[in-house]
Every structure is written in structure tokens, then in C-alpha cells.
Simulated scan of single mutants.
Amino acid sequence: MDRDAILVGAGADAGLAALAAAVELPEGVRWPAFAVVLAGGFVGGYLAGRLAEGPWRRRVNHGLLAGLLGGAALAVAVRWSFEPGAPSGALWPANYVLATGARWLPPGVAARYDALIGTLAALPYGVLYAAEGALAAGAAPGGEPDAPAVRE
């Protein structure tokens, strides 16, 4: 395992998640910024796969690990964005989707399991980064370093 490749990919993902959680954005920019944040796992996975080199399975493993670490940071950032007083930034749409999409929950359930609902809602965002990281790392260039060039 190439720890540097994993740390660079995870660092890119975690940095994007922290930036999305901490920066206040104007109302018209929040949804496009949210889309960029949701696609951010591709960045970390690509970096991890590109730096790891080697066969595609090795790159996928590095991208998956980077995505898991970056996804954990994104899940924490999303969960933190549900707290009162958090900046209305790129993660505000996640809060909006939970608030408007959870209308089917009985009021007693929402009141009783408030923190748990926020945590469970944040987990899919972290899983998304792991899947994106594996996919992007597998697609990143970086075949066998000692493989001979193929000529037509």
C-alpha cells in the first residue's frame, strides 16, 4: 500500500468537505456548490489512483481507502452542518433535503431520534465518496510501471 497516495486522496476529499461545511455561501450558489461537493470523491480517488500507479486493482484499492477516509470526513461535515448556527454553505441542501423529505416521519420519532436521524442521513454521503474514489482511481492512468509499451 502506498500511504502517501491514500493520504493525498483522502486529504483532498476531507479538505473539500471541511471547506463545504465552513464557508457561508449566497443562496443562489448553494445547490451548484452541493453538486460539486457530491462529486468531490472523484478528485480524491483520481489523485490516489494516479499516485499509486500499478495494476487497476491496486489503484482501485487505494481510491477506495482514500474515499473511505474522505467520506468519513464528509459524513462528519454533513452531520455538523445540521447543527443550529452552522453556516449556510455548500452542505445546506443536505439539510434542506432532510427537512423537507422527512415529512413522512411521525413528529414524535423526529423529536426523539433527532441526532440519530442526522447521523443516518450523513452516512450515505460518506459511502458516495468511497464509491466515487474507487471508480475514479480505477480509471486513472497509471498502468504497470515496468510494462512494455504496446505498438500497433
Score class of each variant (00 low, 15 high):
Leu47Val: 01
Asn95Arg: 15
Val37Ala: 07
Gly71Met: 02
Ala5Tyr: 00
Gly142His: 01
Pro87Gln: 05
Ala131Trp: 09
Val29Leu: 15
Gly133Tyr: 09
Gly108Glu: 09
Leu65Pro: 02
Pro26Thr: 04
Asp146Lys: 08
Trp80Cys: 04
Ala35Trp: 09
Leu116Trp: 15
Gly40Ala: 04
Gly41Pro: 04
Thr119Ile: 13
Ala121Phe: 15
Arg112Lys: 14
Ala90Glu: 00
Ala136Asn: 07
Ala20Asn: 02
Val29Gln: 11
Trp56Pro: 09
Gly41Asp: 06
Ala39Leu: 08
Gly126Asn: 06
Ala17Gly: 12
Leu74His: 11
Leu51Val: 08
Pro124Gly: 10
Tyr113Trp: 05
Leu116Ser: 14
Ala136Phe: 13
Val97Gln: 13
Trp56Met: 14
Val127Ala: 15
Leu16Arg: 02
Phe34His: 13
Tyr129Pro: 03
Ala14Thr: 11
Ala134Tyr: 10
Pro107Ile: 00
Leu47Gln: 01
Pro84Ala: 05
Arg59Tyr: 08
Phe34Trp: 15
Arg79Leu: 09
Ala33Pro: 04
Ser81His: 04
Val36Met: 04
Ile6Met: 08
Leu91Gln: 01
Ile117Asp: 11
Tyr96His: 13
Gly118Thr: 06
Ala5Gln: 01
Ala10Pro: 04
Leu16Gly: 06
Asp146Thr: 15
Arg151Ser: 13
Gly71Glu: 01
Ala35Ile: 09
Pro26Gly: 05
Pro124Phe: 11
Gly44Asp: 01
Ala18Ile: 05
Leu98Gly: 10
Pro84Ile: 03
Leu98Glu: 13
Gly126Ser: 06
Glu144Gln: 12
Gly101Met: 03
Trp56Ser: 15
Gly89Met: 00
Ala110Pro: 06
Pro145Arg: 02
Ala39Gln: 01
Ala17Glu: 10
Arg151Leu: 10
Glu27Gln: 13
Asn95Leu: 06
Gly143Ala: 12
Ala90Gly: 00
Leu128Asn: 11
Val43Ser: 02
Ala134Gly: 15
Asn95Ala: 12
Gly108Asp: 05
Arg112Ile: 04
Gly40Asp: 03
Thr100Ala: 12
Asp146Pro: 11
Tyr113Pro: 04
Leu65Cys: 09
